[in-house]
Design a protein around this nucleic acid. Sequence first.
DNA 1: GGCGTTGTTGTGCAAGTGTATAAATAGCCT
DNA 2: AGGCTATTTATACACTTGCACAACAACGCC
Lengths: 209, 209
Amino acid sequence: MNARRKFRREGEERRRQDLIDATLDSVAEHGLEGATLRTIALRAGVTAGLIRHYFPGKEDLLQEAYAALMGRMTEQAKAALAMEDASPRQRLAAFVTANLDAPIIDQRVFSLWATFIGRAGADPALARAHREGYLGFRNEVETVVAEVLAAERRKPDAAELRHHAIAINAIIDGLWIEGCLAGEMFSPGELAAIGIKAVEAELGLAPLS
Amino acid sequence: MNARRKFRREGEERRRQDLIDATLDSVAEHGLEGATLRTIALRAGVTAGLIRHYFPGKEDLLQEAYAALMGRMTEQAKAALAMEDASPRQRLAAFVTANLDAPIIDQRVFSLWATFIGRAGADPALARAHREGYLGFRNEVETVVAEVLAAERRKPDAAELRHHAIAINAIIDGLWIEGCLAGEMFSPGELAAIGIKAVEAELGLAPLS
DNA sequence: GGCGTTGTTGTGCAAGTGTATAAATAGCCT
DNA sequence: AGGCTATTTATACACTTGCACAACAACGCC
């Protein structure tokens, strides 16, 4: 009796990914405080001791989990900008829409983002990770804005461009939060429509007739 | 030897307030996980056992701390709308400015907000508290917007008004986050200026000459 | 098939957690 | 000054936590 538990050996990459996913699930559900090694291991279908085999300590696991989360978020958002055969204005609209519809608008993702970012003030490594992601995102915005305005035969200077990018970034972030926290208050596509209109107003674009 | 520690008896209201402040400090510095009763008590200059004398349990202390935080945030923001002798447009601009300068733009406050709001997905009471605060805030915005547009002799319908309020709310929230997380990237007053311009563009107001 | 490697389990441990409760004392009332 | 009472300290306790380590067994290789 008291037979030892059966198990399977998974590939290293697979196990690490499973553990990271289990970590994100645990943090989203119970917060950083409730995400214990045992909870995480249970969710991943292994025992707690195994985590130490793949990660030096809990802190490292959390950091890798945060990096994975940010990677997935920015990856999906930037994909919308990659459309080759579309006008700058269309690509900007697609970018806004991509950021304000599923799967980016998601309460679980938001909980994770908030939980981690809440520690940015105390954790310099985390703060730096955010800063880089933010600046990258804003640069993407700034590039599209420049193209949109160029197509309108307007020549904004650098400061003007920067201000537009900051404002548009804020519009997207703000609407993202509203959607994540109170998604059912908005009809599908409503946030995206509001976002596009606000962005076009910011840029002084005439409404499409 | 081993003398018992000296202490002073404070008034009940004072002690509760001190404990709540110490709780917010601890959460901002160490996150929810690191905010232990002993840490909080140390910061408040008392011993851990005393907390139980004022709060039934740790959870209650955290809830009251969150409520206090939200109260302070909204109180300061709404005050800007109370200016009696000012045009609607001036009051709207003052509102935006009040939300995008110190002391609302503050990394510590942001850390607290993010840490708590990250649990809104799992904690219904917290989610409801946020929802109410958010709707109240948005209603304030909607009211001013209606006054501003009325002063311009424009008659927006309800849906239009709602969309404006949502967008303006997003602009303020988004810029607030940017300022809190990367305050030193912006010159003083820059965020407020960007915010006012973005809001006026959203409402289609002609720039003041 | 047997064997070694190593991914995986299970157990142990010291430190820290929230809560309960007894003991002490500060401050008010007379 | 002396006692009463409620605030405050101090200690105890059961439990959880992250981490360390020895035993084990799944899988590849010969």
